[in-house]
Design a protein around this nucleic acid. Sequence first.
DNA 1: CTCTGTGCAAACACTTTGCAGCTAA
DNA 2: TTAGCTGCAAAGTGTTTGCACAGAG
Lengths: 157, 157
Amino acid sequence: MRSMSNNGGSKIHGNLTERMDAFKERCRQAGLKVTPQRIAVFRTLIESNEHPSAEMVFRQVRKIFPNISMDTVNRTLLMLKEIGAAIVVPGLGGPKRFDGNIQPHHHLICMKCKKIIDFYHEPFDNIQVPQRVKRAFAVSRITVYLEGLCDKCRPKR
Amino acid sequence: MRSMSNNGGSKIHGNLTERMDAFKERCRQAGLKVTPQRIAVFRTLIESNEHPSAEMVFRQVRKIFPNISMDTVNRTLLMLKEIGAAIVVPGLGGPKRFDGNIQPHHHLICMKCKKIIDFYHEPFDNIQVPQRVKRAFAVSRITVYLEGLCDKCRPKR
DNA sequence: CTCTGTGCAAACACTTTGCAGCTAA
DNA sequence: TTAGCTGCAAAGTGTTTGCACAGAG
């Protein structure tokens, strides 16, 4: 059974070193410098499975890089989205939540505790967008978005 | 053919007076007072088809209600969501965007100009969420969310 | 060496909160 | 009458910008 993630396990797909190397390469191809700050932010992001906000990444990355500034974290996260190394998870306002997992997947959002939970479901990856939409809009990403209450927040069964 | 909306037409489903009456009734049932401000905000919202932010509603509603404050608009919009008379459109940060159309429908977001476009597609309304997800999460709303570039923003064909 | 990236500080945008007076019921 | 609502003001949170120095290429 394909599991819902958020299972405490790592979200990193493939070897960490490989992903870091691929990231460095992607920076170079985009004409961006590979700085220790960028490496630290990217690594923190892909090691997290809680769809962190800039603030959350900042707190975490500070542990190994005490002098990094919030701006740099913010700018780096936006840059990651720009070059396609991260996505911003759709949400209902509040701080942006980032995700280093760019594999096709979908999200549940708990309306109460704001937790974001990944789930994988191949049929959703292949849903067909109607022609009339494709004609009027260059679709780059399709996601199914579920609102509700997580196990902890919903009234007891 | 089911059209994409945002066609300049009204988004109001059913008679305006009916919807206003239903709204008043819903307020009463929730123990909330029916104030002129609330009526003006709700009416502005359902007459808009651009998924307005609080700011956009504020500017519009001021035309007919010059003394209303931004707070009241904000509080009213959040209240509308609370009682189920409006939804917040999923997005990638920035100001919350509200929608007075609570019929099942889906959204395209232009990554460049941030325009939100509704589309209706019955197969998407009925997609089946896997059992394992339903068991762990009380799903209250299912939406398909498309990112891309709108006709105006995408490179010319 | 050069030009981008960083850190700092300030500005900005959006949202939330506390409170005194007002008003729908 | 009175509980709830409004408007104002202030504070809070999250994000963006300008600039001088630092460091990757």
